[in-house]
């Protein structure tokens, strides 16, 4: 079987990201590489350029990486990392953090390629709660 798309969860909060990782492992799969880059280097609330860069490398199994940022500087920090280290096989998902991560991990577990995994995450925008 070909390599699985990796998922990176970028958040201001380490607890938020690790909680989401536990959730997606339960709903989706624990076989998909899901790596968190959350909080500052010294464990405070915030984002870290170095943690995002390292997470990108750790999640990479050769099939590309989908990055889900939570909001604000998570998005900006991720963009800066990708500007400095451009690669065609790393994509930021324009998707809600929780729903996007669940959809992405399930799609990746089914063997979907990067484009399809990103599409699954972005379709999460259209799931209504009411």
């Amino acid at each position: 079987m070909s390599a699985t798309v990796g998922i990176v969860l970028v958040s201001h909060s380490a607890e938020l990201a690790s909680g989401l990782r536990l959730l997606v492992e339960q709903i989706g799969s624990d076989t998909v590489p899901v790596v968190t880059a959350a909080g500052t280097d010294d464990g405070r609330i915030g984002t870290s350029y170095d943690l995002v860069l390292k997470a990108l490398q750790d999640a990479d199994r050769g099939a590309g990486v989908l990055i889900l940022p939570d909001l604000g500087s998570s998005v900006l920090t991720t963009r800066t990392v990708l500007d400095d280290h451009p690669r065609a096989d790393a994509v930021i998902a324009d998707a809600p953090f929780v729903e996007g991560a669940v959809a992405a991990v399930v799609a990746a577990a089914s063997g979907a390629d990067l484009q399809a995994v990103a599409k699954s995450a972005e379709e999460a925008r259209h799931v209504r709660k009411q």
Binding site: Q26, I27, G28, S29, S110
Partner: peptide, 14 residues
């Protein structure tokens, strides 16, 4: 719920 939905989605992908 979420867990069977996840199982279903992964199976459907095959």
């Amino acid at each position: 719920h979420a867990r069977p939905a996840g199982l279903l989605a992964r199976a459907a992908g095959e």
